Amino acid sequence: MASFHFEIKSGKKGRATGHADYITRQGVHRKHGDLLFSGSGNMPSFAQDSPKSFWPPADRFERANAAVYREYIIALPRGLTVDQLRALVDDMIPGLVGDRPYQYALHSPESSIDGGENPHLHLMYSDRAPDGIDRSPQQYFARYNPDHPEKGGCKKLSGGRNRIQLRDEVIAKRRHVANVQNAHLALNGRSDFVDHRSLQEQGVDRAPERHLGPARISGMSEDDVRQLREARVSRETPDPSATSGLGLTLGDCVTTSG
């Protein structure tokens, strides 16, 4: 079975521009050498389809202590070509961000545990979805005016939900990510799949694997790394009986734009 990892983060005022440079490997971040491709979409008119014209005013004009951007970090299946990964990402993004302005990058560094590829998506987006009203950058990130929208900032789509609604939304996003991956795995002749459910919901009696990162792994003994590698191989060995009956097709699973 392929590995499922879905993480949500957010960034405060002043951090979006630098983080966009990080995920797209600009400037000092070029040294990583693991960028496969990147892109963006849904930018407002003042940005002219350029994230470089969107994130700096977001950092400058967004309200203090507000989330300037949110980010999904998603592990993608190994063994797919760049074109196959690009098709998967193109189908996945609309169901995650809708009409919100976004920027993404696909990294594929070498795994610190087994030396294999480690493809994963960074998808950062703003909660302020364009509404057809032309605004200057400063007005765009101002407080929304419900009585006169043209006089205020662009409305944020993140508010007004209780904890249950937020939980259900996260579950739906996880399900969408898994369904798109499984549809593309099947499309490319693969029999493995991912499962968005918790280990407890899957009936698996073990603790979830922690994301250790290269720095922490480099400080581990060879024996500890070997045990991690063997445990991962054991978990990722597909169970043919588990894949039967999934019935996943692109028509059933993939959310596409327009």
Rank of each mutant, 00 (worst) to 15 (best):
K9V: 00
S10A: 12
G11L: 13
K13F: 08
K13G: 02
G14F: 12
G14A: 07
R15L: 12
R15H: 13
T17K: 12
H19F: 15
I23R: 09
G27K: 15
V28S: 10
D34A: 10
F37R: 05
F37C: 03
G41E: 06
S45V: 14
S45T: 11
P51T: 04
P51Y: 11
S53L: 15
W55G: 03
P56V: 02
A58K: 02
D59A: 02
F61P: 05
E62F: 06
E62Y: 07
R63T: 05
R70T: 04
R70Y: 14
Y72L: 13
Y72K: 04
A75P: 00
P77G: 10
R78V: 09
R78E: 14
L85P: 01
A87E: 10
L88I: 01
G98L: 08
R100A: 15
A105L: 08
L106M: 07
L106Y: 05
H107R: 07
H107S: 04
P109T: 02
E110L: 11
S112K: 00
S112Q: 05
I113H: 07
G115A: 05
G116P: 02
P119L: 13
L121R: 05
H122S: 02
L123F: 13
S126C: 09
D127M: 13
R128M: 07
P130A: 06
P130N: 07
G132C: 05
I133D: 02
S136R: 10
P137L: 11
Q138G: 05
Y140E: 08
R143C: 01
Y144Q: 06
P146V: 03
D147T: 03
H148P: 00
P149I: 06
G153C: 03
G153H: 07
K155W: 07
K155E: 13
L157W: 04
S158G: 01
Q165M: 09
D168I: 02
I171W: 08
K173G: 00
H176W: 06
H176F: 03
R190P: 03
S191R: 14
H196N: 09
S198G: 03
S198I: 04
Q200I: 10
Q202I: 01
Q202P: 01
G203F: 13
D205H: 10
D205E: 13
R206I: 01
P208D: 01
R210S: 11
G213Y: 07
P214W: 07
R216L: 12
R216Y: 02
R216K: 14
I217C: 05
M220K: 11
E222D: 15
E222R: 14
Q227E: 13
R229N: 09
A231C: 01
A231I: 00
V233T: 09
P240E: 08
S241I: 08
S241V: 08
A242R: 15
T243P: 00
G245F: 08
G251V: 08
T255M: 11
T256D: 04
